[in-house]
Design a binder for these strands. Structure first.
Lengths: 201, 201
DNA sequence: AATTAATTATACAAATATAGTATAAAAATA
DNA sequence: TATTTTTATACTATATTTGTATAATTAATT
């Protein structure tokens, strides 16, 4: 809800920064460079943002909000819960793939912890929302009762590391196959029988 | 033929620099960063290279030499000349694809013209070698006589721009198809009839 | 057309980052 | 052990970057 959201210079700046931060990380990009590329003067930059970190924060916030919105769209749709899980796993998978290592590295290693704290706090809000959704699903009988929602989150996060594990990958023909295996494992692992589990395989 | 070629620290440094320059360009990478990443001390860096530009020059030279060697391998093989042309076009195509825009931008925009001049001079040597090969082929009747070898080079260079032209690309289903079209056009355009041209299509 | 507002261009001081060197300690090698 | 290589640290001189102040341009509004 930035009041400058429709200002063409503002948009140009944010888009340029988004692209460049994503590609090179935050610390490698100078404000002068951004202004040159976005074709605005430095004074205009400082009209919009206090400094580079605030700009990065704005971009990060936007990206995270997009993810949350997509997640909520899935959860609010009137489809079976099993389908919701499958779709949200797929969503997280895609988002993990699109993640820029350069951007994230700078978020985590930024000397002052500002960006990092901002990111972590937002991430926690999001995780709590997911946790809440899973808890509700558990109460309404969609998920196994003898399963801590925190474990689900933990497993979900580690799924993506597993998807990149060389040792594990060896046993599959391609990445897609391994991802399917993990998703299925997760899927059947959390569901109650009536909601997705096969009685025997 | 650097005497340090087999020194593990030297190798680590060069490999790290290769990767990082390729990804981020030269100017964005500091010597400290390279040393940290390659796990060597700064003093060791300066044992191997006078400065960052010399290191970049070494890497650029290596990359260009690799290309030239591959080209010569093709030209020295005992295969029909038509095949040689097709293979060397494919080689150039691949090399153009692998080109790092970040690396090249820094080569061209480096404030002191050192790297640029080094690159251009090497490139010219290479172009002359190709020119020479085409001239010989022309004399031995593999190429049309009424065709300046310089035109071939010019066309070859512009083929790769054409391959990326949005307007042109529209008319093809995929990139491969357009590339084939261009290669064939080039191929039949330079050959004498007996060496590749179809009498009618 | 005159006034007002927004944007740029330029220059600048202060802060920060980087390059390159000197030195002593530590590690590896002979 | 003696010798060589490598590192760690500290430091100076540059170079770069930040953030601001100012006047000049440009665009928008009255």
């Amino acid at each position: 809800m930035n009041p400058n959201e429709h200002n063409p210079r503002f948009k140009r700046l944010v888009n340029t920064a988004d692209m460049m931060f994503w590609k090179f990380g935050i610390r490698r990009i100078t404000i002068d460079e951004l202004c040159l590329e976005a074709n605005i003067s430095k004074m205009t930059f400082y009209k919009f943002f206090e400094n580079k970190i605030e700009l990065a924060k704005y971009i990060l916030e936007k990206k995270m909000d997009e993810g949350i919105i997509k997640y909520r769209q899935i959860m609010d749709t009137d489809i079976p819960f099993t389908k919701k899980i499958a779709m949200s796993v797929k969503l997280k998978m895609e988002q993990t793939e699109n993640l820029s290592q350069e951007f994230l590295t700078d978020v985590y290693r930024n000397p002052d912890t500002e960006l990092f704290e901002f990111f972590e706090s937002r991430k926690n809000d999001f995780l709590n929302e997911i946790l809440n959704d899973y808890s509700k699903a558990q109460k309404s009988g969609h998920l196994r009762k003898n399963l801590k929602p925190e474990f689900i989150l933990y497993f979900l996060n580690h799924m993506f590391e597993m998807a990149k594990d060389e040792e594990l990958y060896k046993h599959y023909d391609n990445a897609q196959e391994l991802i399917m295996e993990l998703t299925n494992f997760f899927f059947y692992g959390i569901m109650t029988e009536k909601n997705g589990r096969k009685k025997s395989t």
